[in-house]
Measured scan of single mutants.
Amino acid sequence: DAEELIELVERALKEGREIILLGVRITSEEAGKWFIEWIRRFL
């Protein structure tokens, strides 16, 4: 579910982890915020 995915992304970014989803590397909080917004819009 989308909320679970958002929580995972937020937690990983807070822990300083690198996330790779759909071939996109997300390493900064700014990118994470963009990704979370995208999830909310399309899922």
Rank of each mutant, 00 (worst) to 15 (best):
D1A: 13
D1V: 15
D1F: 15
D1E: 09
D1L: 15
D1T: 13
D1M: 14
A2V: 14
A2T: 09
A2Y: 15
A2W: 15
A2L: 15
A2S: 07
A2E: 07
E3G: 11
E3R: 15
E3Q: 13
E3V: 11
E3P: 08
E3C: 15
E3H: 13
E4Y: 15
E4N: 11
E4P: 11
L5E: 02
L5A: 01
L5I: 05
L5S: 00
L5D: 02
L5M: 09
L5G: 01
L5Q: 00
I6E: 04
I6R: 05
I6C: 07
I6K: 05
I6Y: 05
E7L: 12
E7T: 12
E7Y: 09
E7V: 11
E7C: 14
E7G: 13
E7N: 13
E7P: 02
E7H: 12
L8G: 03
L8K: 09
L8T: 04
L8F: 12
L8D: 01
V9D: 02
V9T: 02
V9K: 00
V9R: 01
V9G: 00
V9M: 08
V9L: 09
V9S: 01
V9A: 02
E10L: 14
E10C: 15
E10N: 12
R11G: 03
R11F: 01
R11W: 08
R11K: 10
R11H: 07
R11D: 04
R11M: 04
A12D: 02
A12V: 11
A12Y: 06
A12W: 11
A12M: 11
A12H: 06
A12L: 13
A12S: 05
A12R: 03
A12Q: 03
A12I: 13
A12C: 15
L13Q: 02
L13Y: 02
L13N: 01
K14M: 06
K14R: 13
K14Q: 09
K14F: 02
K14E: 07
K14N: 09
K14V: 07
K14S: 08
E15H: 06
E15A: 10
E15M: 05
E15Y: 10
E15W: 13
E15C: 15
E15L: 06
G16T: 07
G16Q: 07
G16E: 03
G16I: 15
G16K: 06
G16M: 15
G16Y: 12
G16A: 14
G16R: 06
G16H: 07
R17V: 13
R17S: 05
R17Q: 03
R17A: 09
R17L: 14
R17M: 10
R17F: 13
E18T: 12
E18A: 09
E18I: 13
E18V: 13
E18H: 11
E18R: 09
E18Q: 10
E18N: 11
E18Y: 10
E18M: 09
E18K: 08
I19W: 08
I19Q: 01
I19F: 04
I19C: 15
I20A: 00
I20Q: 01
I20R: 01
I20D: 01
I20W: 04
I20E: 04
I20K: 02
L21K: 03
L21P: 00
L21F: 08
L21D: 01
L21A: 04
L22Q: 05
L22T: 03
L22D: 01
L22H: 04
L22W: 13
L22Y: 01
L22N: 02
L22E: 01
G23D: 07
G23E: 08
G23P: 07
G23V: 14
G23M: 13
G23K: 08
G23I: 13
G23Y: 11
G23L: 13
V24H: 04
V24M: 06
V24N: 01
V24G: 05
R25S: 08
R25L: 13
R25A: 12
R25F: 12
R25P: 03
R25D: 09
R25W: 12
I26F: 08
I26C: 15
I26A: 05
I26Y: 03
I26P: 03
T27L: 14
T27I: 14
T27H: 11
T27G: 08
T27F: 14
T27K: 08
S28G: 12
S28E: 05
S28Q: 03
S28H: 04
S28F: 11
S28K: 04
S28Y: 07
S28A: 10
E29Q: 14
E29T: 13
E29C: 07
E29Y: 11
E29G: 10
E29M: 12
E29S: 12
E29V: 12
E30N: 09
E30Y: 11
E30S: 11
E30M: 12
E30I: 12
E30K: 10
A31L: 15
A31I: 15
A31E: 14
A31N: 08
G32S: 05
G32T: 09
G32Q: 06
K33C: 12
K33N: 08
K33M: 08
W34R: 14
W34S: 06
W34F: 05
W34Q: 09
W34T: 07
W34Y: 05
W34N: 10
W34I: 11
W34V: 04
F35E: 01
F35W: 07
I36T: 02
I36K: 05
I36R: 03
I36Q: 03
I36G: 01
I36E: 05
E37K: 06
E37D: 09
E37R: 05
E37L: 09
E37I: 10
E37Y: 10
W38A: 03
W38C: 10
W38I: 08
W38N: 00
W38P: 00
W38Y: 05
I39P: 00
I39C: 01
I39S: 00
I39L: 14
R40Y: 11
R40K: 14
R40A: 06
R40M: 12
R40G: 04
R40N: 08
R41Q: 11
R41K: 12
R41A: 11
F42H: 06
F42V: 11
F42G: 02
F42T: 04
F42N: 02
F42M: 12
L43D: 01
L43I: 10
L43W: 10
L43T: 03
